[in-house]
Write a protein that binds this DNA or RNA. Structure first.
Lengths: 104, 104
DNA sequence: TTAACATATTAGAATATGCTAATATGATTA
DNA sequence: TAATCATATTAGCATATTCTAATATGTTAA
């Protein structure tokens, strides 16, 4: 693919390259949630969590809708869930390898 | 998953969060290659490319073996190829949406 | 054994990212 | 309309990442 394509791909990975953002995506895996529900699950300031939500939204990973004064975020690109599953699989394999190499 | 798990997941995404590193992984998709083959494909300094290879190796995404003075890098965790494919699918959908919204 | 080759490592400057604290915006309630 | 609630935005500091230039290490060839 082109340089531009690799940059776009890197941008997607960058959006997921933070533990808080991974946590947010996983929180939303079963459906959209109010920010007011997300905030207390996340161990950081309201403004910081809002910034992370905004990064995920700007990359087209999440979308949101306003209802009154509340805002509901949801997953717009379900591919990210599969990407996270693959990364989990990769990590589990690495852990198994490490265990094996300790045993012998 | 735990906080630790989200950090490990984020580390995998971080390893892919650079266009040069995406390009390297894609170069290796059909099999291992010599650094001497990779270097001229990548538009940056030798030392910089070496640093990117090292980041991918440290995250368990690539592995390498020495043969004489040459070094061969290959994909150790093929899950990353599927992760890139999913990210590509996501981007293509976004582009289609953008085209649609321009039309109407 | 010296020179050349292939790759890795290091230091440090430039840039990007993440965080906090403060403030802004917009909806709801009193 | 004033006060409060829910969320977003901004500024600026702290930290992390990226790049270049220089140098180191190990291997092969003369």
């Amino acid at each position: 693919m082109t340089d531009l394509g690799n940059q776009l791909l890197a941008n997607i990975f960058k959006a997921l390259a933070h533990p808080t953002r991974v946590q947010i995506v996983k929180l939303l895996k079963d459906g959209p949630l109010c920010v007011c529900f997300i905030l207390p699950k996340i161990d950081s300031e309201q403004s910081n969590t809002s910034q992370h939500l905004s990064i995920l939204r700007n990359q087209g990973i999440l979308d949101n809708k306003k209802t009154g004064s509340k805002v509901i975020y949801g997953i717009k690109s379900p591919e990210v869930l599969q990407m996270i599953e693959l990364a989990e699989k990769l990590i589990l394999k690495q852990i198994d390898e490490t265990k094996d190499s300790l045993r012998k």
